[in-house]
C-alpha cells in the first residue's frame, strides 16, 4: 500500500491497457484532487455493472475522489449493490462475508497500525443498509463501542435492491415493495442516534445531490478515523429500480428526499473538532469571534 503499487514495473508500461496507463500517469494518486476538477483527471473507479442512473454509483464515485490518500486506502464491503462498483476501483477492496465487514475492518485497521505505525492507512467500510443495519448490525455496533478507528459508510437505498426488493431495517414505515407487498409495519431504524450513543466521533447524513458536501463529509470522516475513533456516514442513495424512479429523475428525488426526511446533519465530537483544527487546519470549528457590541447611544 503506497504509491509504488500503482507504478509500472520496468519495461511493462507499453503492455498495459490504456486505462491503466492513464490512471498511473493522470490519476489522483499522490495528488490532491477535488470534485471541482472532475472530468479533467482519470478517476480510479472504472466501468462496472451497476444500473444506469444509480445514485449509489454517483455517491461511490464521489467517495473515491474524496478519499484524502487513495493510495493508502483500503475499502471493505459486503454483499449488496455497492460492491459491484467499489470492487472496480484501483484501490484494494476486501469483500467480507455478509455482515462481517466491520469485524474484518477492525482487524485490518489494527493490523495496518501494527505494520505501518504512524503512517496513516485508511480503512473505509462501504456497505448497504441491509449489510450495516440488519445482517451486520451486531458487528457494526460493537466496532463502534470498541471505538475502532475506521470509517463506516452506509449506502442507504432503503431496500434490499440486489435480491428483488425486500424491506430492510432502514426502509420507511408503510413502504410497499415487491417483496413487502403489505407495506413495512415498523419505523426506519435510527442508526444516527445509535452511532452517537455508541460513541462515534463523527456522524453525518448526506445526499449525493451536493457533491461538494459529500466530498467534505467523507474527508472529515476519514481523517478523524485516523486517530480519534469510529466515524459514521449515512448516505441516501436511492434504488431507482425498486422504487421505480425514472433515471432522469434520480437527482430530483434526492432533492425531494433531502428536503423531506434526509436533511444534512453533522455531529462532531469536541475531541474530533480539536483534532481537525490542530492537525489539518480546519477553521470551521474555531470559536466564532464575538460580535461587536452594539453601539450604546450616548445620552444627550
Amino acid at each position: 500500500m503506497s504509491l509504488d503499487y500503482v507504478k509500472f514495473s520496468n519495461g511493462f508500461e507499453k503492455f498495459m491497457p490504456k486505462e491503466y496507463r492513464d490512471m498511473v500517469e493522470h490519476g489522483p494518486f499522490g495528488k490532491k484532487v477535488s470534485v471541482s476538477q472532475m472530468g479533467s483527471f482519470k478517476e480510479i473507479l472504472e466501468e462496472h455493472p451497476m444500473c444506469a442512473g444509480c445514485a449509489m454509483t454517483l455517491f461511490i464515485r464521489l467517495a473515491m475522489i474524496a478519499f484524502p490518500n487513495p493510495e493508502d486506502t483500503i475499502t471493505v464491503g459486503t454483499a449488496g449493490c455497492g460492491r459491484l462498483a467499489i470492487s472496480q476501483a484501483a484501490i484494494p477492496f476486501v469483500y467480507g462475508n455478509y455482515g462481517d465487514q466491520n469485524g474484518v475492518a477492525s482487524g485490518l485497521s489494527r493490523g495496518l497500525r501494527l505494520r505501518f505505525g504512524d503512517k496513516p492507512k485508511d480503512v473505509v467500510v462501504m456497505a448497504g443498509d441491509g449489510g450495516t443495519a440488519d445482517i451486520g448490525f451486531q458487528q457494526v455496533l460493537h466496532s463502534w463501542f470498541r471505538k475502532e478507528r475506521f470509517t463506516t459508510i452506509m449506502l442507504d437505498n432503503e431496500v434490499y435492491g440486489n435480491t428483488g426488493g425486500q424491506e430492510s431495517g432502514m426502509t420507511n414505515r408503510g413502504a410497499v415493495l415487491k417483496m413487502a407487498p403489505l407495506g413495512k409495519k415498523f419505523e426506519k431504524m435510527d442508526m444516527l442516534q445509535m452511532a452517537k450513543v455508541a460513541g462515534c466521533a463523527y456522524v453525518a447524513t448526506v445526499v449525493p445531490n451536493n457533491p461538494r458536501r459529500v466530498e467534505s463529509v467523507i474527508k472529515k470522516a476519514v481523517l478523524i478515523a485516523r486517530e480519534v475513533g469510529s466515524t459514521y456516514i449515512q448516505a441516501y442513495t436511492s434504488c431507482n429500480i425498486e422504487y421505480a424512479i425514472p433515471t432522469d429523475k434520480v437527482m430530483e428525488d434526492a432533492k425531494t428526499v433531502e428536503n423531506d426526511r434526509y436533511q444534512f446533519s453533522e455531529y462532531v465530537s469536541e475531541e474530533a473538532k480539536q483534532y481537525l483544527t490542530e492537525r489539518y487546519g480546519y477553521k470551521e470549528f474555531l470559536p466564532k469571534p464575538a460580535a461587536p457590541a452594539a453601539a450604546i447611544p450616548s445620552k444627550a
Partner: peptide, 16 residues
C-alpha cells in the same frame, strides 16, 4: 458550469 461532470453516475464518462 461543469455540473454534468460532477453528477454523472459513471466515472470517466463526462469529461472536460
Amino acid at each position: 458550469c461543469k455540473l454534468c461532470t460532477q453528477y454523472c453516475p459513471e466515472a470517466n464518462t463526462i469529461l472536460y
